[in-house]
Simulated scan of single mutants.
Amino acid sequence: MKKPQTDPVIARNRKAAHEYDLGESWEAGIVLQGMEVKGLRAGRASLAGGFAQIENRELWLHGVHIPQYAQSRWFEGGSRRKRKLLLHRAEIDKIERKINESGLTVVPTVLYFKDGRAKVEIALARGKKTWDKRHALAERQANREAERAVQRRLKGRSD
């Protein structure tokens, strides 16, 4: 009998969608040590400021904060240490080609558990300019206003 999982998502990088134009994404396993898994299960991780980098044909996750588990005695490496990501060689090569040819970066977007294993979703990203961010905010606000007007109209109010 399978355990019901209510919400396996640990952390989302909401800033990533605002700061970057997100492209293709992959699901990667993450190598954790010791009490990091229990720290994740406590649900206090943060992806803000995190990025992935290829070193020696391996993908490494930098800047992701996984706090120390409260009941553990010690914790090696610190809460923002670099962690290895697990992907197939072909996927790593594809990511490396795209990074080198078009100047993209790799950012983590979601950290979650899947079948009891910690996974991170990474996406190729291109940085947005300030005016792009303002344009996206204005567009989102206009869509929200239009949706509200439609709902008011359906309810019979003409405000």
Results as ranks from 00 to 15, higher is better:
Ile30Glu: 03
His135Pro: 04
Lys3Ser: 12
Glu55Asn: 04
Ile30Val: 13
Pro67Val: 05
Glu139Phe: 05
Val9Tyr: 12
Gly23Ile: 13
Thr130Ser: 08
Arg41Asn: 00
Gly49Tyr: 04
Gln53Glu: 12
Asp159Lys: 15
Val31Leu: 01
Ala138Ser: 11
Leu40Lys: 00
Ala11Met: 05
Glu24Ser: 06
Gln33Met: 08
Ala90Arg: 14
Lys155Ser: 13
Val9Arg: 11
Ala16Glu: 12
Leu154His: 10
Trp60Thr: 12
Asp115Cys: 03
Ile92Phe: 01
Lys2Ala: 11
Leu59Glu: 04
Ala118Lys: 00
Gly34Glu: 04
Val31Met: 08
Lys82Arg: 09
Gln33Val: 15
Leu32Trp: 00
Lys119Tyr: 03
Lys133Phe: 02
Ala125Glu: 06
Trp131Ala: 06
Gly156Trp: 01
Gln33Cys: 07
Pro67Asn: 08
Ile92Arg: 09
Trp60Arg: 07
Val107Glu: 10
Lys128Tyr: 06
Ala146Thr: 15
Lys114His: 13
Asn13Lys: 02
Leu104Ala: 01
Tyr69Arg: 03
Leu87His: 09
Val120Tyr: 02
Arg81Val: 10
Lys98Glu: 15
Gln33His: 12
Leu154Pro: 01
Asp21Thr: 09
Gln5Cys: 10
Lys114Gly: 04
Lys38Leu: 06
Ile66Tyr: 00
Asp115Gln: 14
Thr109Trp: 04
